[in-house]
Design a protein around this nucleic acid. Structure first.
Length: 277
DNA sequence: ATAGATGTTGAGCC
DNA sequence: AGGCTCAACATCTA
């Protein structure tokens, strides 16, 4: 589920714990702890103070006293929230009902503070993961995450180089590469293609110079606008494909023609056959 | 009931 | 060698 802007939003759901000391930790051994034993995570965090919430691309991270960095990847179904928010539905989701904050069944990690505050990482499918780093400097999994395309430091050069290579693979697959477009996922890739007028199944090598420029411009625009809306807990701008893509009979927000739907680059893709060529 | 879901990885095949 | 495709991961929902 979560892409750049949702990860940003979810990471900050843990802000109520900033400046406070963790009293106890519940880390239930499961697949999300495939990189770090659940017990080691619990031992490291118990007694530590949360200093800040951060996110880069699809990765969230939390700094704690003692030089501890807790990394959380949300995978497909991971969510971060304050325990007392269970039952609430984030406003930005295409189907808010489907993303109502869940019951405790799939809680994987819970940090408990004095006064009843509890921060929860819940993930039914367990495609998400928890990382832990202790010591000076940041670990590789955090250093290599970002900057995302909304950041001024984002470097287009590797993308330009990949495009010039003239690959026959679909441009949708290129947009999903996290090393080139940190944080871009399935719905953001479709949104970027819609705004740049390019079909998802176009071969990267077939793009004109103008189309490549339009694509890169749309990448920045969509990432920034997504962070400003969804990243702040609000629905994305009117006129975005986002509002139509989830329904079976979704229509182009501009022309009203039925959206195309096909698997491209291994993912379900939706686009306007009239506006995207 | 069977398919599909907003992600990542690695095996296998060009 | 390196790029590309697809299945696998685990659970829930339509």
């Amino acid at each position: 589920m979560p892409e750049l802007a949702e990860v940003h939003w979810f990471a900050r759901r843990w802000a109520p714990g900033v400046g406070r000391r963790v009293e106890s930790v519940e880390a239930v051994s499961s697949r999300v702890f495939r990189h770090e034993a659940a017990g080691r995570v619990a031992d490291a965090l118990a007694g530590a103070s949360l200093l800040g919430c951060e996110s880069r691309g699809k990765r969230a991270a939390f700094r704690f006293s003692g030089g501890i960095l807790l990394g959380v990847h949300l995978g497909m179904t991971g969510r971060l929230f304050v325990e007392s928010e269970r039952g609430e539905a984030p406003r930005f989701f295409g189907d808010g009902e489907a993303w109502r904050l869940p019951a405790p069944k799939h809680d994987r990690l819970t940090l408990r503070f004095a006064g009843g505050l509890a921060l929860v990482f819940n993930d039914p499918r367990m495609f998400g993961e928890v990382r832990l780093h202790a010591g000076a400097g940041d670990p590789e999994w955090w250093r290599e995450a970002g900057p995302d395309p909304a950041a001024p430091e984002y470097d287009e050069a590797p993308v330009r180089a990949a495009m010039r290579r003239g690959s026959r693979s679909p441009v949708k697959a290129l947009l999903l590469r996290q090393d080139l477009f940190p944080g871009v996922g399935n719905w953001m890739a479709d949104e970027i293609l819609f705004h740049s007028g390019v079909r998802p199944d176009r071969a990267v090598g077939s793009l004109s110079a103008g189309e490549r420029d339009a694509l890169l411009a749309a990448v920045r625009v969509i990432c920034r606008a997504a962070l400003a809306t969804v990243g702040a807990g609000a629905p994305p701008p009117d006129g975005w494909l986002f509002h139509q893509r989830w329904s079976k009979h979704g229509r182009c927000p501009v022309t009203g023609v039925p959206l195309a739907r096909e698997t491209v680059g291994g993912r379900t893709s939706r686009w306007s056959p009239l506006r995207q060529r």
